[in-house]
């Protein structure tokens, strides 16, 4: 199985609660069998769903992991053959590691409930 390029819109170190409000994004290359996940952070000129979609296409991303995304952008990305795992609430690193293990699903909530991750 080939490597996958994964994009996560960010809020601090979390998956951004809202796709359209993210002003930064992380792009990771997940290769099966490799523990290290190289990542690059990107700053967006301003938060916008269109800006994130452009970045997804520019960086040839295969999978988007995000929180809330509107129907319109979800279907646009799906039409562009990008897999979208939405409604994910988690620290970005935790979501990424889970994805690398093949265990991340849309709708996953991965915060240690009431723990320090939540702050």
């Amino acid at each position: 199985m080939r490597s996958k390029r994964v994009l996560i819109p960010l809020y601090r170190d979390e998956v951004a609660p809202r796709f359209d409000l993210a002003s930064a994004a992380l792009v990771a290359v997940v290769t099966p069998g490799e523990e290290a996940i190289p990542t690059t952070d990107f700053l967006l000129p301003q938060p916008s769903a269109e800006g994130v979609c452009d970045l997804v296409l520019q960086k040839d991303v295969d999978v988007v992991i995000c929180g809330a995304i509107e129907e319109e952008y979800y279907h646009y990305l799906r039409w562009k053959r990008v897999e979208v795992l939405d409604n994910v609430a988690a620290p970005a690193r935790v979501a990424l590691e889970r994805f690398a293990k093949g265990a991340l699903r849309a709708g996953d909530i991965l915060f240690a409930k009431g723990g320090s991750d939540a702050r």
Partner: peptide, 12 residues
């Protein structure tokens, strides 16, 4: 399912 989760990830 969302008790204990940061409110921003629920209300969005």
């Amino acid at each position: 399912e969302v008790a204990g989760v940061p409110g921003r990830h629920v209300l969005r």
